[in-house]
């Protein structure tokens, strides 16, 4: 079995509302947004880890916390044996060369005043600038653009001249520029047409095969996560409610939330229209999460204990975890 590249233990990221002067003057209390609330998971080297959940469940915040773009409240993030949370600026800089992000907003993450070539070259100049010549950087940019199936002529164009799929590719080229071993892809195909999304998925798989990259695949598209990932976790209101091998999670669907989420995904099947359990209501606010199990307000199988006690992540065997009192033997 492959060893773990990243191990996260009890990670918490909270945001504060009402910290400012005005709310202090007018006496409004401090509100805590429990964006990531005690997440533990590990990602194996060379694998793809899918992180799914509805918007507002904290999956993007979790991803950002791993890179310390957002500071965690507590917990540890062990990357290659070292705790990212405790790293100083210098170590952090080194870590961020090995770990890269593909951002969700494919135009928003490209500087409109820089050409595609400059964008892709920037990490190279930042990290190796003093040791390498202009010439070899240009050479490298061409190689990277080719690696993501873009024409080398694209280097002199500005972001607004590209289509959504091409802009995404530039984002990918920039992410792989420093030969990272870990990439977080945040909704890598959102806003793309079906066929374009397929080209991006193919490209990401090819890169993984060639460069042995580990992916953290953050998405609300379950079909895609099923297709791309080896392991996955389902998040709800800042907590992992179910985790395991992707095939296991899809076949066994232990948590009531997963049982509602997975069948809710529309599928192309000409045969039958399925009857699914529709969840009532929407995600509660992470400012005032419900007591006990966070999912209990929407859960069709809720019982007394759910209100009082928060369910721990139980091992159902074979590395399949689920946080639900239904699976607690007593």
């Amino acid at each position: 079995m492959a060893e773990d590249l990243i191990r996260i233990r009890n990670l918490k990221t909270h945001f504060y509302q009402g910290k400012g002067l005005l709310s202090r003057v007018f006496g409004q209390g401090l509100k805590i947004v429990h964006a990531v609330d005690g997440v533990s998971l590990s990602i194996k080297k060379g694998s793809t880890f899918g992180l799914v959940g509805e918007s507002g469940c904290g999956k993007s915040t979790l991803g950002k916390t791993i890179f310390r773009l957002v500071e965690p409240l507590e917990g540890e993030i062990i990357f290659e044996g070292r705790d990212v949370v405790k790293m100083n600026q210098k170590d952090l800089r080194e870590f961020r060369q090995k770990a890269q992000i593909i951002f969700q907003d494919h135009f928003g993450c490209l500087n409109p005043r820089m050409t595609a070539g400059q964008i892709v070259a920037e990490p190279l100049i930042m990290c190796r600038g003093k040791q390498v010549s202009q010439r070899s950087i240009e050479h490298e940019v061409v190689r990277l653009l080719r690696a993501v199936n873009l024409d080398p002529d694209a280097a002199v164009k500005f972001p607004n001249e590209f289509s959504g799929g091409q802009a995404r590719r530039i984002g990918v080229a920039r992410a792989i520029a420093l030969n990272p071993i870990f990439i977080m892809a945040d909704e890598p195909t959102s806003g793309l047409d079906i066929s374009t999304a397929a080209t991006i998925l193919n490209l990401m798989q090819d890169l993984q095969d060639k460069m042995n990259i580990t992916y953290l695949w953050v998405s609300h598209n379950l079909t895609q996560v099923k297709y791309m990932s080896d392991d996955m976790a389902v998040m709800y209101l800042g907590k992992v409610v179910e985790m395991g091998r992707t095939s296991e999670v899809f076949n066994k669907m232990a948590h009531p939330y997963t049982q509602a989420l997975i069948p809710a995904v529309p599928r192309v099947s000409s045969k039958q229209r399925k009857q699914t359990i529709l969840l009532k209501g929407e995600i509660p606010s992470p400012i005032n999460p419900p007591s006990g199990c966070y999912f209990r307000t929407r859960c069709p199988q809720v019982f007394k204990r759910c209100e009082r006690e928060e369910p721990p992540l139980l091992d159902l065997g074979g590395g399949h975890f689920c946080a639900c009192h239904l699976y607690d033997g007593h």
């Binding site: 374009t196 397929a198 998925l201 193919n202 099923k226 297709y227 791309m228 095939s247």
Partner: peptide
């Protein structure tokens, strides 16, 4: 569409 292909198989684009 990724839903129709098994894991690891290339998607048609």
């Amino acid at each position: 569409l990724p839903g129709r292909q098994p894991r690891g198989k290339r998607l048609h684009s």
